[in-house]
Design a binder for these strands. Structure first.
Length: 385
DNA sequence: CGTCCACAGGAATGACGGGCGG
DNA sequence: CCGCCCGTCATTCCTGTGGACG
């Protein structure tokens, strides 16, 4: 039931499989294939289909004895151009240190390795939008034109993105080169999700361990959330775990509902616990202000309390500029809701609220030795007249 | 209808911990 | 060991701005 598992068959994705298969097929005859671009929201099977097709390609090419190299990189996890490039090098058995070299140097080594091995190399850049938004499209630009300088090797790029609008961030030259072929992954509907769940459940669950209605509910909940198969699978897996723990003989709708809460809860706690100290203090400030004030707070007030909390815990406060940035980051991950508003004569600022339950904040902070006392702290601005 | 608040958020720059090849 | 480069986080300095107040 894990979503990194690639099943033998991917229901409702025949069209995309055939399409991608057709695009990469020329590789088997020793000629490079077109670059391709794959769009679709999370959990629509982009990664699964791509890996599935490329696995087939690998085994087929082994049969035929042709020399094909494939490298799959998740750009969001890699994070920087450097780490993406070093993954590419690793796939070619080119040794590079995990840091220290100039990006250009790593790129040169990659090119040399590629040329030396006379390979056709397929680069899969998953969640490529994350990289482009954070770092710009220089790497992509270089990659699209790497063939011009190669004597023997050839590269093709398969880009995968969750975000359709991300095209706007691309240089037109890169865009036209990259989207020689495009494949769009429509979200699954509830019926399709149900089928997917049942297929997987055949392997993962014993017979009669699932109530029909439980599976239907998983599918419905995930369908409501842009047809995310990953979410559907998570829900069913967690529901299964919950049922097992309480010794029930089958997974019911109620288990699924509990699983829904659980999945969300765990996600937030995970993010919350791994926050840097200063972000935690900012979050705590919002929490404290929310205790008394009306529904929202503004940047300046938050910063004031944040500074007090810093003093309380013996840290030197960051600048307001930085805290403003932290607030935006917290907004991005959903822990805060912040939106810019103008209050006329009284300036332009952000209205900020907690994006999660207050009890959750209290719970996580109380579990941390360092921050336990802060949730009970009363800011001076709230004690005065 | 202009002012002017209280910031937003971009750009440049720097400190820091890490690693390179020579 | 040196001089150089990397990514990350933060500071400093800055220009931009929606709209209530006067």
């Amino acid at each position: 039931m894990r979503h990194d598992y690639i099943p033998k068959k991917l229901p409702h994705r025949d069209e995309q499989i055939n399409c991608l298969g057709g695009i990469v097929a020329p590789v088997l005859r020793g000629s490079p294939c077109s670059n391709a671009f794959i769009y679709g929201k999370t959990g629509t099977g982009k990664t699964a289909v791509t890996k599935y097709v490329l696995n087939m390609l690998t085994s087929k090419s082994r049969e035929l004895g042709s020399s094909v190299g494939i490298c799959y990189v998740n750009c969001r996890l890699a994070g920087t151009e450097y780490r993406v490039l070093s993954s590419l090098c690793e796939a070619l058995d080119v040794r590079v240190p995990f840091t220290g070299l100039a990006v250009g140097e790593v790129f040169d080594r990659f090119k040399q390795g590629l040329d030396a091995q006379k390979k056709i190399f397929i680069v899969v850049l998953d969640e490529i939008d994350a990289l482009i938004k954070a770092r710009g499209d220089t790497l992509l630009y270089e990659l699209t034109r790497v063939n011009e300088t190669l004597r023997h090797g050839r590269t093709s790029i398969i880009g995968i993105s969750n975000d359709l609008r991300f095209k706007e961030f691309l240089d037109p030259r890169v865009l036209s080169s990259l989207s020689e072929e495009e494949i769009v992954f429509r979200p699954y509907d509830a019926a399709e999700l149900q089928e997917i769940l049942w297929k997987r459940a055949q392997v993962a669950f014993s017979e009669n361990a699932l109530q029909d209605s439980a599976v239907a509910l998983c599918a419905a909940l995930a369908a409501a959330e842009h047809g995310d198969a990953r979410r559907a699978l998570d829900l069913l897996r967690v529901a299964g775990e919950l049922a097992e723990r309480e010794g029930a003989d089958c997974v019911s709708e109620e288990h699924v509902r509990q699983a829904e809460k659980r999945v969300e809860h765990d996600r937030i706690v995970e993010v919350l616990e791994n926050l840097p100290v200063h972000s935690k203090l900012v979050l705590c400030s919002v929490y404290l202000l929310g205790k008394t004030k009306v529904s929202y707070s503004i940047t300046g007030d938050i910063y004031g309390i944040y500074c007090e909390l810093c003093e309380q815990s013996g840290l030197s406060p960051l600048t307001q500029r930085r805290v403003s940035g932290l607030i935006s980051e917290l907004d991005m991950v959903g822990l805060l809701n912040a939106r810019v508003v103008s209050m006329g004569r009284y300036g332009r600022t952000k209205k900020i609220r907690l994006g999660i339950g207050r009890s959750l904040v209290r719970m996580v902070f109380s579990n941390s030795d360092r921050l336990r006392d802060l949730v009970g702290y009363v800011p001076t601005c709230l004690t005065g007249p």
